[in-house]
Design a protein around this nucleic acid. Structure first.
Length: 248
DNA sequence: TTAGAGTTTCGTCAGTCAAA
DNA sequence: TTTGACTGACGAAACTCTAA
């Protein structure tokens, strides 16, 4: 099972995504700066072991952030090793959902729309109640969401679904399970199935939407890091030049 | 213009997990 | 134990691109 790797990646990844969403995140101070010798100056070690003092405005401090992040991941791993099994299982077995990740994102960045869960619930309830109370719906896809009739675009596999024709005259039994005729029982099962399918359909849509946003955030993050990397390389080159001139 | 390949989108199923 | 939410995998349909 390779899922054991994902939580660490995800925990650091969530930070990265959050940072990636906000391009100014590089301006924020790192959680710790081990090579910082004074408030305005950072010490950078060159390949020959010597050190050079760099103004704090330099982007060279950013790798420290990464180092610290790696250290935090290592810490996390250590903590996990001593945590109880249930907690570890919770950490290792499942990655956070896109909903969680994106909700975190949205709390950091107002540009990302937060998922209105209450609204979604209301819509679902509405859909369910309409499915249950509709006098004679021709199809659940027409009565519930209103999407398909609006576009007139009902996929063929939905039309030929074995359930699509069975949703007529859905009536709730007065006491489900006690005095239910076979037909009512079948209708109840059918209705439950249709509700489940409808919810799952919505969930799949939402999941895909979240996934897209998530991938976009990753791409943004990659772009930011690539730029940063380029700047760092140039800066390192300049510093080496300065050092070589001094040495001569 | 059109046939076919490649890509995208969508619904469904199955499996997992957390909460009740 | 049951239930609901979430998400990967799969197949089907729609869409896009390209060579003939």
């Amino acid at each position: 099972m390779d899922t054991s790797v994902s939580p660490e990646l995800d925990s650091s990844f969530n930070d990265s995504v959050t940072d990636g969403e906000d391009d100014h995140s590089e301006d924020s101070p790192p959680p710790a700066a081990p090579l910082q010798v004074s408030p305005g100056v950072t010490v950078v070690q060159l390949c020959d072991g010597q050190t050079v003092q760099v103004p704090q405005t330099s982007v060279i401090q950013s790798p420290q952030v990464q180092t610290v992040q790696i250290a935090r991941v290592a810490e996390l791993q250590h903590d996990e090793s001593v945590a109880d099994t249930q907690q570890r299982r919770a950490l290792l077995s499942r990655r956070p959902s896109y909903r969680k990740i994106l909700n975190e994102l949205s709390s950091d960045s107002p540009a990302v729309p937060k998922i209105d869960e209450e609204k979604m619930e209301e819509e679902e309830e509405e859909a369910v109640s309409s499915a249950a109370s509709a006098p004679a719906p021709t199809s659940i896809y027409q009565t519930d969401s209103g999407q398909y009739p609006a576009t007139g675009d009902i996929p063929a596999y939905q039309l030929r679904s074995p359930n699509s024709g069975l949703s007529h005259s859905i009536v709730m039994a007065a006491s489900p399970g006690s005095m239910q005729s076979p037909s009512h029982h079948t209708e109840n099962i059918t209705r439950k199935r249709e509700v489940r399918l409808m919810k799952n359909r919505e969930a799949a849509r939402e999941c895909r939407r979240k996934k897209k946003e998530y991938v976009k955030c990753l791409e943004n993050r990659v772009a930011v890091l690539e730029n940063q990397n380029k700047t760092l390389i140039e800066e390192l080159k300049a510093l080496k030049d300065i050092y070589c001139h001094k040495a001569e």
